[in-house]
Write a protein that binds this DNA or RNA. Structure first.
Lengths: 236, 236
DNA sequence: GGCCCGTTTTGAGCTATCGCAAACACCCGG
DNA sequence: CCGGGTGTTTGCGATAGCTCAAAACGGGCC
């Protein structure tokens, strides 16, 4: 088990109220692991034995229905925690986590959590913040799904991805990991067909440039305009 | 300010790790207030000056878009906390809270939160659990909105309301506060018209009995069956 | 007791989006 | 360099649910 350099993670909000020396103690309880692209990190319904902090790569958290339909709960970017089932009192993971790119994560055993929060109460506080923020994002997503049309929802989704994991190019912003039409459909509550049609249309308007599991926002502002349009006035 | 009887609230999960004497200290920081039916407790966007524990009545938390459309985030039942913006690091309320029935709540000033969690770390832990549970419910709701038809979503919504706030009658379960077709529409991402049609149809099948802001589930099991039906086989 | 207002019901047409199906493009491995 | 497979595009019909409209209903207030 390689020792983790504290400087890599010290600035994360998670460790907000933690002294550098203490940070080392926290990290000592973790190990790290590599996950190749498309490998599963944990499966929905499995025992929540660990929680994670992503160091490199990108992870997709997805939830599956009994009938096999799936939605993408979120994409995890480096510096974010995931698999926090235990902190919220769940014994099993409520979703499946897949590395969408070669990824590296720190891993703590779930059993270490009670001890850690007792010793470092600020961990509970910052985790509460994190989970609270996700709850708000969740509500925003519900609001969008309830009130907006598919095109607007896709626009919002792409803008969020760009903000979270966008790589700035001189001719736009590229989403920095492989993402398919299907994935976007599962983020917005629609079908890959509809997403494909929308992206095709946008491409012809010069708003995006896209290909196999790859999307570049050429005109982010134009997409913002689309996203905020209140359901009338389509293109002629 | 009337003193609050600790026995009323001691059993709540929120106060799980708190000693009875300490509980008294926590309650001393709170005041209580009455909210008449249909009055606002706080407005979306307002300064989050307080957080609340509902003692009696029912509260609807709703989120509004810039264009005036609304969704119901959740209904709060007695014993539940709401308005926790501060715990999750928000300076303003992300939703509006309305008493849907004459209600009574305990109120703490937001400013007391840091002190309370420092003194009683278990508060942070139990709040984390609460928020985590809500996050999961939120994800479930997104999953439903993405994969189910309106009728199933309405069925699920009513079953949840019945579980949370159902009053058992000999001829069914009544939802124990005034709730309109519009409210249900805003919980499920549809329109009051569609909800009305669905309830009419259910009524003719003997599944429910309903009227002005009033719903009784006459055949809860039948509704469960509806809720779980996988999008095929309608009635003949 | 009658009136007024918010809620509910119901009809009829419309359309955004789905579902199915088929052709296509691109990337990787051999 | 070619073959196979996954991901993407596009056409076409079907439809669930929306929108608009109007009437009926029910309760509380004066």
């Amino acid at each position: 088990m390689a020792k983790v350099d504290t400087s890599l993670v010290a600035h994360l909000p998670l460790f907000g109220g933690v002294k550098p020396g203490d940070l080392e103690e926290i990290l000592r309880e973790a190990r790290s692991a590599r996950y190749p692209r498309n490998s599963a990190i944990f499966e929905q319904g499995a025992d929540a034995q660990s929680f994670f902090l992503l160091l490199h790569g990108h992870v997709r958290a997805a939830k599956t229905t009994p009938t096999g339909e799936q939605i993408v709960v979120r994409y995890v970017a480096p510096g974010e925690t995931f698999g926090l089932a235990m902190a919220i009192g769940a014994a099993r993971y409520p979703a499946t986590a897949i590395a969408v790119d070669d990824s590296v994560a720190l891993i703590w055993p779930t059993s270490a959590w009670p001890r850690l929060v007792e010793r470092f109460p600020s961990l509970a506080a910052s985790t509460l913040q994190t989970v609270g923020t996700r709850l708000q994002e969740s509500h925003t997503r519900i609001l969008e799904m309830s009130t907006q049309q598919v095109e607007q929802r896709v626009a919002h989704a792409l803008l969020r991805l760009a903000k979270q994991s966008g790589k700035k190019l001189d001719h736009g912003i590229e989403i920095d990991f492989p993402i398919s039409r299907q994935d976007i459909a599962q983020m917005t509550g629609t079908t890959l067909h509809t997403v494909s049609r929308i992206l095709s249309s946008w491409e012809s308007q010069g708003l995006v440039e896209s290909g196999r599991q790859r999307i570049i926002l050429r005109d982010p502002h134009g997409i913002v305009v689309l996203a905020e349009r209140s359901a009338d006035s389509g293109a002629a």
